[in-house]
Amino acid sequence: MDVTTSTATPLAALSITSVRDSAGTLIPDSTTTQDTELTLSGMGPVGRVVRILDNGNVITTASVTVAGTWEISVIVALGVHSFTVSVDGAESPPWVITVVAEPTLDLLRPRVPKAYGDGTHLNFDSAMYEDSYLSVMVGYTGMKVGQKIRLRWRGAVVYESEIKTVSAIGDVEFRIPRLEVVDVIGRAASIDYTVTLGNGTVVGPSVVLPLKVDAQPLDLVPPTITSDNRIVTVLYPGMNTPQTGRARWSGVVAHDTGEQNLDTRPENFDIPSAWISENSGREVLINYTVYRNDGQHLLFSRVLRKRM
């Protein structure tokens, strides 16, 4: 009796079970992606080498594990890709994916909701006298979930925000610390941002927002400090009685000195040793406030930055 043993691989044992992008996100069959780096996974006969085809053409091979699975990464061009896997003349059903181009990004100018006029002017006294931060909103054409945004504030120093990941299409809020805004009263800052795409490409910077912060009645220059950090000295144009002032020490926590009477001479403020020691190795931001005894709001000086 003749017995013929077939060596053909059953079609059911040969398949593509998933396709994922470079971030590991599943790309369902018959859908689109903007990623050109793909990872294909599937099943096949144990110990065999299977061929991976794209639109009928072999593009690579993969070894099947003892568990009957295989996985391979490929880089493809834009367009339609019909992936199949074959061995011994058997071929799996196709997994079809269309790779489309990333949308063109138009990185629009960031916005400051509390700015006035054409959006490039800010009055600190009326807009954020009590606020601990300045809100800046970022929105742009081509925004996509998963993109990462970093805001940059160029004021007295360059302040870079934390990186925020887009979780929904729409404005993303960034917060500029209060003292960075205080430090440009009577001056200007420029604000822009960059966007990192899913493939790691950094796009930008965006269109710049020039933000002019209105001047105060007095130009309060930064204070000075002694080499041992024990005495902060205040002296500014127009300093006179009956003005009063106090120094603020912003480190791991914020401290205020007592209020002292001012006249035309430099005014010294003693700094407790505990304020210095608790900030060892850190940068402290030091400024002062002035009250003119006229019933109006306090005025704020620019900032001295000192590493302890």
Rank of each mutant, 00 (worst) to 15 (best):
F83P: 00
D171M: 06
G119V: 02
V80F: 07
A12Q: 14
H121D: 07
I16H: 02
L53M: 12
V3F: 12
S161G: 10
D21N: 10
Y288W: 01
V184Q: 01
E283N: 15
M128Y: 07
E91G: 00
K164M: 15
T39S: 13
S190D: 15
V49P: 05
E180L: 11
V50M: 02
L209S: 05
N268W: 00
K164I: 13
K164H: 13
Q296S: 14
S63C: 08
I149G: 08
E283G: 09
T244W: 09
M43Q: 15
A90H: 08
G139S: 14
D214Q: 07
I149K: 04
R292S: 09
G44L: 01
R248G: 06
D228N: 10
L220P: 00
P45K: 05
E71G: 11
L26C: 00
G117E: 13
A189S: 15
D35Q: 01
T84G: 07
I271A: 04
T69I: 08
G44R: 01
A90V: 11
R302I: 02
T9G: 08
R265W: 10
A215R: 11
I169D: 03
A23R: 12
G142F: 01
S86I: 04
Y236N: 02
W275A: 02
V87I: 15
S73Q: 10
I75P: 10
L220N: 01
P103F: 06
S18L: 03
T84K: 09
T39Q: 13
T104L: 12
A254T: 11
S132G: 14
S6P: 06
I169Y: 02
V46P: 09
W275E: 01
V284Q: 03
T257W: 08
G142R: 01
G146K: 07
V66C: 05
V203F: 08
L107V: 05
T120A: 15
V58Y: 03
L235M: 12
A8E: 13
V284I: 12
M137A: 14
V182P: 01
N268L: 02
L179D: 04
T98Q: 12
D192H: 07
T264H: 15
T9S: 08
D214K: 04
S73K: 07
Q34W: 13
Q243I: 10
E180G: 05
N229F: 13
S161R: 06
T257E: 05
D228V: 07
R154A: 12
A23K: 13
K148A: 10
S135P: 14
T60A: 13
G146T: 14
V50Y: 04
A189R: 10
I185H: 01
V195P: 04
D192I: 07
E71T: 09
G24L: 06
M239W: 00
T98W: 02
L151G: 05
S86V: 05
F269W: 02
I16R: 02
M1G: 14
L220E: 04
A8P: 00
S273L: 15
A274H: 15
F83H: 03
N279W: 11
T36R: 07
L78W: 12
Y129I: 10
T233K: 03
R248N: 08
V99W: 03
E130A: 13
V253A: 09
V58P: 06
L14Y: 05
T244M: 09
L26A: 03
M128C: 11
T165D: 08
V100A: 10
V145I: 12
